[in-house]
Simulated assay, not measured.
Amino acid sequence: MPPSPRNLDELASALLANGPVKTLPAAPKRIRVRLGGRYVADTTRAVYVWEHAYYPGYYLPLDAFAEGVLSYPGSGGGNGNGDRESGYALATLSAGGVSTDRVIVFTRRGESGSEREDGNVLAGLVRVEFAAVEAWFEEDARIDVHPKDPFKRVDVVFSARPVRVSISGTEVARSEACFHLYETGLPVRFYLPVTAVRADLLRDSAAVTACPYKGEASYYDVVVGGVDGLGEIRLRDVVWYYKNPKIECAAIAGCLCFYNEKVDIELDGKMLERPKALFS
């Protein structure tokens, strides 16, 4: 997952020079932003903006923001138009004694207003960094991590095809059935019953990750081979599970999943090729 850019000037300049990967209206979905216990932005005219190819963010029209919550350093504050010459301005979003400066306001070059012209598809839109505020809402449902990609889906299907997992020739899991999770752009994942995995090989990990489609995941390391720690192989964070997955993935709750890229998986008697993916 791409990290949030540290230099907002560089991001804004790059987006204006090269354009985003793509954009798509999110209307009529209602999008709200909460900061300091207050809803500081509310709109049904949000836009999906892909700054990179992985997932979109929500950009909101300037008039979605409540009066007085946006200010521009050195400009006297207010919901103004920022730096009209550069095509963008960095702003501060404040409410309830809390503020963030991780905000870009895209403006119309040369004069006031918010119409999009001169190829600037972002003019009149505001980028608020997702993690910099208290919460985001789609209608009345809170969203986590980042907005879901409307072109991506996650399907969980039950399969009675047997699965066997091994690491360096050692069998670490075997199940006569499991859940297959299909997520656009990623290898199929096999979620096995916890009793199908050798518990003596698992070691607790402190790692935690979050996914807007599945929820918050916890991890295990797997240790195989060796005697008294000599010659052992330890694969860190190679197994994960969701205690309380999102409702659309509820079937995988408590099941264990291995990174296909890092272990050998045999499905229905056939060894699968290790995929070349983001986590290889």
Rank of each mutant, 00 (worst) to 15 (best):
V40M: 08
R274C: 07
L60E: 06
S114H: 02
G225D: 09
R189N: 05
L70E: 09
G82Y: 02
G225L: 04
V47R: 00
S99I: 02
E117P: 00
E248G: 08
K214T: 10
A12K: 04
P25G: 06
F137H: 05
E216C: 03
S205M: 03
S114C: 03
N244D: 14
A141C: 06
P3I: 01
V145C: 11
I143V: 14
I247L: 11
G231C: 09
I167V: 15
V208W: 01
V165C: 11
R234K: 13
D221I: 01
S13T: 15
V222G: 01
T107F: 00
D204A: 12
V163Y: 05
F190R: 04
N244R: 15
A53Y: 14
E10A: 13
Y55W: 09
S280P: 11
P20F: 02
S280M: 05
R234T: 10
L24Q: 14
A123N: 01
G269V: 09
D228R: 15
Y191I: 01
T43Y: 05
K29N: 07
V126I: 12
P3A: 13
R6S: 10
Y55F: 13
K214L: 09
K276E: 15
R234G: 05
G119S: 10
V223I: 12
K276Q: 14
K246W: 05
A123S: 13
I233D: 12
Y242F: 14
